[in-house]
Amino acid sequence: MIHSELQDIIQQGENSSVEFKEYGVKNESLAKEMVAFANSQGGVIILGITDSGTISGIPTDSGLEERIMNIARDSIIPALEPQFQPYSFEEKTLGIITIPKGKDKPYQTAGKYYIRVGSTNRMASQSELMRLFQAAGIFHYDANVVEKTDISDFNFTELDRYFSDYHIDFSKQSEPDKQRLLINTDLLTDDGQATVGGLLMFGINPERYLPQSGISFANFAGNEIQSELIDKQNVTGPLPFIVDRTLAIIKSSLPVPSEIKGGKRENLRVYPPMKVFRELIVNACVHRNYAIVGSKIRILMFRDRIEFISPGRLPNTVTIEKLKVGVSYSSNPILLKFMDNLGYVERRGLPMVYYEIKKLGKEVIFKELGEEFRVIVPIIF
């Protein structure tokens, strides 16, 4: 960190990634700050500054680095590995503690889980804690029970079709055997209620219990969301239907201008192959965070691009660069299993998307924005 960068950080004050602390701060308070940053997007704690931004400094021979490392190792579960750097600033010494975004979330101290919200820390709510455990692979939301459901909420015709590929005549099974089969395949819980994954795959009206399911599609005439809205549709139902229906909507919405050249009609636009759009729809449906109940998958079509927006951040160990080379992690293994068995999962996944667009001389953009993961596909002219 250079002097001007540190000066800018101090002038901007505390925020979602910066915290000021004086030298006399208690170990418990430092542990809480570290946990909150690690459970969020990482951050920097600057020791030797008051909350108002006044430089108070720290002793130069305080053994502070050892103290910080001991807190990170002994007071935080799992242990953290922060970086510590003493820094001379305005004739005083500051201690800069850098906390990376945690790879082993969720972190806790004294049995409590904290997250960073704006310039403050607070204990994680039940839903926030659920997301942290889901990101860590400790908990899978698609195995969660959907209250007040039972076997009657399933589409038996679709179950017949699915199990016939495994030489099982579902419709001819006894009622206890039907229930046992659905329990053994993770579609029902032991007490006979539908799992989230079961309802999303084979439910009659999954959106009745899971309003966050489905896809919201919007088609704009220009390149901005303020442009004229050409079409808007909400696609609901089980995931296989959602994928097929949404792909059909995208295909019918892509304009195909053409002109006559030498007595032959030629298209003026070249689009990525439909398998690219299909993979992005499947990826959004299978890997979104269904614990975020207030948001659907959104697909926004503009004149120059299509954006696929999925609720939820990438899991702990997955980065955008890793996605491009095929590293992935299943947040919803039940959904992945059934969509794979039904032939919807492309083995090359997002790397296929990346390279198909690259062959057309363009770049696909993967990015995290807030609690969303976005894939932006240019529409090739």
Rank of each mutant, 00 (worst) to 15 (best):
E279S: 11
N283F: 09
P272T: 08
R269F: 08
L247G: 02
L247V: 06
R278H: 14
S258W: 02
E279M: 06
P257E: 12
V270K: 12
E259K: 13
N283E: 15
L280W: 04
K264L: 06
K261N: 10
S252F: 04
V256W: 01
P273D: 07
M274S: 11
K261A: 11
P257V: 01
A248G: 13
G263T: 02
G262T: 00
G262N: 13
K251W: 08
N283C: 08
S253T: 01
K261P: 03
M274C: 04
S258A: 11
R278Y: 01
I281P: 12
N267Y: 10
A248D: 15
V282W: 11
N267S: 06
F277T: 01
P257M: 08
N267A: 09
I249H: 00
M274I: 10
K251A: 12
V282A: 12
G263Q: 02
M274P: 07
K261V: 13
P257G: 09
R278C: 09
K251P: 05
S258F: 06
K261T: 04
V270E: 14
V276I: 09
V282K: 09
P257Y: 07
L247H: 11
L268A: 00
R265S: 06
V276Y: 04
G262C: 00
F277H: 15
L247S: 11
I281V: 13
R269N: 12
E279H: 07
I250G: 08
N267T: 07
